[in-house]
Design a protein around this nucleic acid. Structure first.
Lengths: 342, 342
DNA sequence: ATTGACGTGAGGTACGTACCTCATTTAGAT
DNA sequence: ATCTAAATGAGGTACGTACCTCACGTCAAT
């Protein structure tokens, strides 16, 4: 009744333990017929390899690498913190984590860092970076080396990444749009859109989803063109101030990017702050405070802790060629308002 | 640099492996002074017991029990499904799961089931049940037997449960209230409240939170007294139909309990359905469809998968007297709308 | 019939921990 | 100083798996 072991398989397949071992670990030197017999026995008994025992025997250490930009956005800091936290409890699951930082918006430096990784010191890579041709090539190289790759937060769909850990950003944008429309309510107003960069796939997708919903369900609200701030506080401040001066019909501001500090600062000091619906992404100290102060109306977020743990689980599974539990790895689009802010 | 083992501790503490083992597993026969020496070495080296190796050596099997009502609510079914799903992948982590069902609203039967559990066939119990004096006693008995207990979904704060896995239901009610107020917007309207039972702590807490927010932020909206449906579809149907006939100022319905099937059915067929803001709890097939059909405006939910996995993690940890990673065990109050419904 | 390549079996050691037995040392009481 | 009980050491086996070596058997090509 207890779970079957390799010995049970050997017995029912009528072969020795060594042969079972060869089959399971895909070592050469076994006739196809014998492989089939062993496989049948595995199937029949419902054998599941005891990963913990295997890892013990093999002195397994998962050496994982997170690759992050040094963008001056609190979200990236939060991600970094989550990685650190995961690291401290990761001794328990044989996982060692390194963080590689590359200069924001410098794919060249990123590629250089990726080049330094090889299969004999790395068992998995989680990347949060924009998709450029160079990055694509670097990822292809890593894959060719047999290293599992997951994309983090912003997907890299045209690369050979094994998995994407993050939210559906189109749906996230739609969510923001729905709330913006419902919260503004009134007609004849307009919404300002602030993005980090139109290079970042996640930003573009969110904007797309936002526009879809606004067009479908709230056509009376005008959505203004995206303004890029490149995660620069000074730029943000200028853009927002100017806009609020120039157009008095602004009823909402949607911050698409990862940073909202400057935006919150400007709005906090502005006379019209009560009349503006503010929706941003990512729960950080800044957005948290803004929610608490009734300055911000909703934050669309993704749990960085989940993201990090999921990335590590997926990378470990890929590294062992194991399946993943899909339902556990779905990252939710969280809507955070003042009341469910814990 | 690799993680230290018991042997390393023995060496640095200047004792034998057997003594280290006695200390770690709290077996008797070691002088206090020696215990201190060993503890110091553990501290110094940052030793963390390899739980996987320990479980292997000890042939550990975690025998967990979930105790659930047979309430005819889809949420309970979803919970049951989540447990089944967790069970299938639980072979990997040495966990065996049993589900005990008790007749809804019959604490006597529940207590009888609990009485049958003992420490030599159970390593942990997760309970979803209302807190009654009998239940309190039964839990006290289990605790006296040394069995870890977690409360599921609805807290049992006046018992000796080790942990609560679920959301802050007052905050959940506040969340519902905030959205209800924002979505209704207009003045001079009223909101109907439907609860499962005023015995269920989670229902009461949600109602409380809802009232708080409505009073604070939306005083122009009248909140009607709670109507109990005892999870009975026929009762629900009657209550809702009558109310919609009698009062034409109903602008919103808040379904506090775990079941919303009958409510959705009634509203779906009603002529005023477009004019009513519907907010319910728990994402199930019914609420999912209602969201999709624009019949329901928001669902406040908690991820049953997370709940089950968290309960199992916590019970395993308690059973081993290990600490839990708080941040990983917090269950979020999820706001689900049409757009972030995946 | 001999050679050699390949397939397979038998048996071992190791991983980090649990748990057992038995011998020996130590401390405290007399 | 002697006795006794408690504390400790030494060494073993086991858990399920990985990985190694070596011997033996089989079969086809020569």
């Amino acid at each position: 009744m207890a779970r079957p072991t390799v010995n049970d398989i050997a017995k029912t397949a009528g072969v020795s333990l060594a042969t079972v071992d060869r089959v399971i670990n895909m070592r050469p030197g076994v006739r196809e017929k014998t492989v089939a017999r062993v496989s049948a026995a595995i199937e029949q008994l419902g054998y599941v390899r005891d990963v913990t025992a295997a890892n013990l025997a093999r002195q397994r250490l998962y050496r994982m690498v997170f690759v992050l930009p040094d963008a001056p956005a609190l979200f990236v800091d939060a991600l970094r913190d989550a990685i650190s936290e995961a690291t401290s409890s990761s001794i328990a699951d044989r996982t060692e984590v390194r963080i590689i930082t590359f200069p924001n918006g410098n794919p060249h430096a990123l590629v250089k860092s990726l080049r330094a990784l090889s299969a004999d010191d790395t068992d998995g890579v989680a990347i949060f970076a924009p998709e450029t041709p160079h990055v694509r090539d670097a990822i292809a190289r890593l894959k060719a080396d047999g290293i599992p790759i997951v994309a983090l937060v912003s997907d890299l769909p045209n690369t050979e990444r094994d998995h994407f850990v993050g939210i559906d950003n189109i749906a996230a944008g739609r969510t923001a749009g729905f709330l913006m429309g419902k919260f503004i309510g009134k007609t004849g107003s307009s919404v300002m859109i602030l993005v980090s960069s139109l290079q970042a796939r996640d930003n573009v997708e969110r904007r797309l989803g936002f526009d879809q919903v606004m067009a479908e369900s709230f056509p009376q609200i005008e959505v203004l063109p995206s303004l890029e701030n490149h995660d620069d506080d000074a730029v943000t401040e200028r853009l927002v101030s100017e806009m609020l001066e120039r157009r008095h019909d602004i009823a909402g501001i949607y911050s698409v990017g990862h940073g909202s500090r400057a935006l919150v600062d400007v709005v906090r000091e502005h006379e019209r702050r009560k009349g503006i619906t503010l929706i941003a992404h990512e729960l950080t100290q800044v957005t948290r405070e803004a929610l608490h102060d009734n300055l911000m109306d909703a934050v669309i977020s993704q749990d960085v802790g989940h993201i990090v743990r999921s990335a590590l689980r997926v990378l470990r599974a890929k590294s062992d060629r194991r399946d993943i539990v899909q339902s556990q790895e779905r990252i939710r689009i969280e809507i955070v308002i003042r009341e469910n802010l814990t």
